[in-house]
Amino acid sequence: MLQALEWKGRTLRFLDQTRLPREEVYIETEDYRDVVEAIKTLRIRGAPLIGVAAAYGVCLGAFEALKSDDFFAFLREVDADLRATRPTAVNLFWALDRMQRIWLPGESEGDWEDIVERLVEEAKTIDRENALLSERIARFGAGLLEDGDRVLTHCNTGPLACGGWGTALGAILWAVHREGKRLVVYADETRPLLQGARLTAFELQKAGIPVTLICDNMAGFLMSQGVITKVIVGADRIAMNGDVANKIGTYTVAVLARHHGIPFYVAAPLSSVDPKARSGADIPIEERGAEEVLSFGGVRVAPQVAVRNPAFDVTPAELVTALVTEEGVVYPPFGEKLERLKEGRRP
């Protein structure tokens, strides 16, 4: 499996995902600002991985803060810069809140070096936990896939996006490589940045799993022909009622799956469940720049016209067959079950 990022002493090494699949380029940095820029520009992407990267970004900022006049004022700036990168992926804020619980109470202390050491340990813990959780999600998700299934997935949810096995794509990888199931995967291209074409197809090909690439607007036709038997996707944020925010186009796929009687599964860690969002209406949706739609690969493909470029959409809970978490598969109704899981109790 590709390693999307790695902590090396006082340096973060990460794979520049914007350059895949043409070349595999790793960037090493000691500057938290590079992490901020990488998250904004999708060099680092995928909700779980963004959380891990943000935690390590705080560590890089903390090392720099040791050289500043005001250690805690500098850390506040680091925290604010990281929080401003991507508004929809709640794992970012979940990880930064965990890191904040380390450094914020330390203002009454004087041992800045000790705080930095504890921050690094917490970031490593988040990283390890993320890998373990992805394995559990992959195992539970694989149980929903049957030998011979033809599975459609949207966007990218493998090791590149999540670390470890991944979430939705992790379920596919586990089903094939650990359970010996024969699956054919359909990856839609995922406009406008082609995460499905560039990343999901790339990861599946590397893993030796048969993959067929389709344009986003082909899914309905293939479903009507009986070609697709299951859909499994990831999530950037899940509301407490089970509404799911994921890459733009997910809602369309969910509607098509419901119309054709195809199960629609969502795989994500419980850290993606936002207790402050009672429904999808409470989830902020990131709008990205017009150039992502007007151009591709630096080449203009449309005239200079008005553009809407929401990066995510919200799929209503009633279209979700089940949620796959590290604590197991959750079936509707989701509300009370998600509340119990967030409180650490079995539903």
Rank of each mutant, 00 (worst) to 15 (best):
D216S: 02
I232M: 08
E203T: 05
L294N: 07
G289M: 14
A197K: 03
V253I: 14
A201K: 02
E291N: 05
L270C: 08
N241L: 09
P303H: 05
R300F: 02
L193R: 15
M218F: 05
V231L: 07
P269N: 00
T321N: 12
N241D: 15
S295Y: 15
V244K: 04
T315L: 06
R198N: 06
E327G: 13
Q225W: 03
V307K: 14
A317C: 09
I228Y: 07
V305C: 02
I214F: 00
Y265V: 01
Q205S: 13
A257V: 12
I228T: 04
G226V: 05
A239K: 07
G242T: 04
A290Q: 06
I248H: 12
S295I: 00
V299K: 06
R308D: 12
A235I: 09
A281P: 00
G234V: 04
I209N: 03
R258G: 01
K230R: 15
L270R: 10
K206A: 13
G298W: 08
I214M: 05
F221L: 15
I283A: 13
V293E: 01
Y265D: 01
A322W: 06
G298D: 01
P275Q: 11
G289D: 14
E291F: 14
V305P: 00
N246S: 11
G220I: 01
A235Y: 09
A268Q: 06
Y251R: 12
L199N: 14
E287M: 14
A281N: 01
R198C: 07
G226S: 03
A306R: 13
D282Q: 08
I228M: 03
V299Q: 07
L294R: 13
Y251D: 15
P310E: 12
V253A: 04
K276G: 07
E326N: 11
A197Q: 03
M240S: 12
A268V: 04
N217I: 01
E291G: 00
P310Q: 08
C215A: 15
A317G: 00
A267P: 09
T200Q: 10
L213A: 08
K206S: 08
V266G: 07
S271I: 11
F312K: 05
A277N: 02
A277D: 04
G289Q: 12
L256E: 09
I283T: 05
T229N: 07
V211L: 09
A267F: 14
R308Q: 08
I262K: 10
Y265M: 00
V227G: 00
G297N: 08
V273H: 04
R288T: 06
A254H: 03
R258W: 11
V255S: 03
A219V: 06
I228Q: 03
E291A: 10
A290P: 08
I285N: 12
G298S: 00
G289V: 10
V293P: 01
T250F: 03
A267I: 03
R288H: 08
V273Y: 02
A207R: 10
D236A: 13
G297M: 01
R278A: 15
V266N: 08
G289T: 13
A322T: 10
S279G: 08
L323R: 06
S272M: 02
V305Y: 00
I214N: 06
T212F: 12
P275N: 09
V211P: 12
T200A: 06
L319T: 09
G208M: 06
I285V: 14
N217V: 00
A235D: 05
Q304L: 15
